[in-house]
Design a protein around this nucleic acid. Structure first.
Lengths: 225, 225
DNA sequence: ATTGGCCTCAAACGTATGTTTAAAACAGAC
DNA sequence: GTCTGTTTTAAACATACGTTTGAGGCCAAT
C-alpha cells in the first residue's frame, strides 16, 4: 500500500473514533480499517492499544500545555505584583484552548470530548499517564485559581473547581450534539467560541457565589450531617 | 443453590459493578459471580445484558420520578399563583434525590454515579429507553427552569442548563473518587448531601450570572464569529 | 406417584477482541 | 545487484465476551 505516514493516519482515525465512541467501545480493527492500514500496524508502531491511547492524548496535550504555560507566563507578567483575577485566569485557559491549531474543523470539539472522556472513562492507566505527563500545568492552574479566590475555604474551592471542570468537560464533550439540537430547535448557529463565551461567565459566577445557601431553605429535607 | 430472589441479587450486583466500572467494562460473568448465581440466570430472567441495564435504571428511576413529580406538585401548590423560584426548583430536585430510600450506605452515590454514566456513556439504547420512560418529569423540570429564569434569552437558558447538567452529572459520576481525593488531601469527610448543598448555590449563581462578559476581556484572542 | 411449570446448572456456541508470528515487500547504502 | 534494516502483510493465536442449549432439580397441584 505504501501510504504516507502510517503512524499519523492511525492517530487521526483513533482520535476521531475514541471521541465518537469511547475507548473500550473502539476496537483496533475499527481504527485500522478507518485509517486504511494493516491491523498489526498499531501494535508494531505503538506497542499496544493503551499506548496508542496515550499517544493520541500526547499529540494534542503536549502543544496545548506549552501554549497554556506561555499564556500563564504572560498573564502573570502583565499583572505585575497583583495576582491574576479569576476572570483573567479562566480566559487565559479558554484562549489557549481556542487558539490551538486545529487539524480540521472538528478539531476543538474532539479535543474537548477527549478531555471529558479522560475524566469520566479514565481507566487507571490513562489517569496515571496524564497526571505524570501533564500534572504541572494543571497544578499551576489550580494555584492560580487558589490565589484568585482567597475568600473561599479550601473545601469550598475544591468542590467548586470540580463543578467547573464538570460543566466544561461535559458541555464540550457533547458540544457537537448540543449545537445541532439548538440549531434544529431555534435555527441559531453556535460556534465553539461562543459556547466558551457563555461558559466562562457562568463558571465565574458559580465560583464566586456566596455560600449563604449552605443551609438549605425552609422545608427542605436535606440536613447537615 | 436455591438462594432467595435471584433477580434481586443480580440487580444489586449489577448496579454496584456498573457504577464502579461502567457498562461495557462490566461483564455478565463479573455480575453473576458477585451475585453468586449462574451465568445463564441473567439471560433467563432479563433476556439480555442491555435489558439488565434498563432494569437497573428502572428499579431506582421509577420511584425517583414518582417522588420528584410529587415534590413538584407540592412546590407548585405551595407557591400559589407565583411560579416557583430557581432555588426552590433546584432544591426540590435535590431533596427528592437525597430522600430516596437507600438500599445501603452507598445507595445515593451509586444512584448519582449511574445517572452520570447514563449521560456520558449513553449507548443509544439507554438514552432511548430513558427518554421514553422518564422524559415527562424531565420536561417538567425544564419548564420550571424556564419560568424561574424569565430574564434569560432562550439561547442563554439553553446553554446554562447544559452547564448545570454537566456540573451535576460529572461531579456525581465521580463523586466517590473525588470524595476520596479530598479525604486523603485534607482529612475532610464529605457526604453526598454536603456535595449537593455546595452544588446548588454554585448552579444557581451560574444560572443567574449577568452576561456582561459576553464580550471577552481586553487582550483575549477569542472573538465573536 | 405423577405431572407440569418454573428455575438452575454446566457446558458449549459463535463471535470479537488484543496481540503475535513469520514471510513478503520495500527502501536506501554500498 | 546485493545486502540490511524497516515496514507491511495475511494468518493465526489465545482469550473473553454475550448468548443458547439441554439436561436436571425443585415444588406445588393433580
Amino acid at each position: 500500500m505504501a501510504q504516507p505516514d502510517t503512524v499519523e493516519r492511525i492517530l487521526d482515525a483513533a482520535e476521531e473514533l475514541f471521541a465518537e465512541r469511547g475507548f473500550s467501545e473502539t476496537s483496533l480493527r475499527m481504527i485500522t480499517s478507518k485509517a486504511e492500514v494493516n491491523l498489526a500496524a498499531v501494535n508494531y508502531h505503538f506497542g499496544s492499544k493503551n499506548a496508542l491511547i496515550h499517544a493520541v492524548f500526547a499529540r494534542f496535550l503536549t502543544p496545548f500545555s506549552a501554549t497554556l504555560e506561555k499564556a500563564f507566563d504572560e498573564l502573570e507578567e502583565s499583572c505585575g505584583d497583583q495576582p491574576p483575577t479569576l476572570n483573567q485566569t479562566l480566559w487565559a485557559l479558554t484562549d489557549s484552548a481556542v487558539q490551538m491549531p486545529q487539524r480540521n474543523e472538528k478539531g476543538i470539539s474532539i479535543f474537548m470530548r477527549l478531555l471529558g472522556l479522560a475524566y469520566t472513562q479514565s481507566q487507571g492507566h490513562l489517569r496515571k499517564f496524564l497526571e505524570q505527563e501533564y500534572g504541572d500545568p494543571f497544578s499551576r492552574f489550580m494555584r492560580l485559581l487558589k490565589t484568585a479566590t482567597p475568600q473561599l475555604s479550601a473545601v469550598d474551592r475544591y468542590w467548586r473547581i470540580q463543578f467547573m471542570l464538570g460543566a466544561t468537560a461535559f458541555t464540550m464533550s457533547s458540544s457537537d450534539a448540543l449545537r445541532d439540537i439548538l440549531q434544529n430547535k431555534t435555527g441559531v448557529e453556535t460556534s465553539v467560541q461562543e459556547i466558551a463565551m457563555r461558559l466562562v461567565p457562568f463558571l465565574a459566577a458559580g465560583m464566586q457565589a456566596e455560600d449563604t445557601m449552605l443551609v438549605p431553605p425552609k422545608g427542605s429535607k436535606v440536613s447537615v450531617a
